[in-house]
Each structure stands twice: as C-alpha cells, then as structure tokens.
Amino acid sequence: MTELVDPEDPAAGLAAVVALRRLADRLEDSQVERAMRSGWSWAEVAEVLGVTRQAVHKKHARRLLAAGVALRRR
C-alpha cells in the first residue's frame, strides 16, 4: 500500500468506517454460508456471532435456501 492516509482527516476516517462495514458484511455473508454448508446449526452460528438465533435466521435463511444450502432443522 503506497497511499499514506492522514489520520487527522475525518473524511478518510469516516470512509474507513464504511469500508469496514462492507468488509464485515462480506465476511459475515460468506462465513455464515460456509458454516451452514458444513452442517452448523443456526444456534451455533448465532452463539459465535453473539446474536439471537432468530436474528441470524432472519438475515441469512432466504439467501442460503435460494443458494441451495441444505439447512438443518432448528
């Protein structure tokens, strides 16, 4: 990385927040998918993410079903 970004520059700092959210979202989508493909339960994924089972189900179930992931009951 050659660009040195001024840590005093709020524009750069705020852009970093957006970039980190994008990164977290991408990682969450891909890693939840990977876990469910390897047979994890929603409860296990939820425990690791520190959210409720309902929250992780609501956020990812439709996408994973459409992607053809065989989801465990519960």
Partner: peptide, 23 residues
C-alpha cells in the same frame, strides 16, 4: 475500498476475499 481499509490499518486484497452467494 482497499485504501479506506488501509486507513484503519487493514491490508486486504479485496479481489481475493471469499465470495458469498448473492440472493
């Protein structure tokens, strides 16, 4: 994206991030 992540000290080649199946 990479430049903004670098502000937070994160060096990632975004092209090699794991993909999620889009809905």
């Amino acid at each position: 994206w990479e430049q903004s992540l670098a502000v937070a000290g994160i060096e990632v080649r975004t092209g090699s991030l794991p993909e999620a199946t889009p809905e």
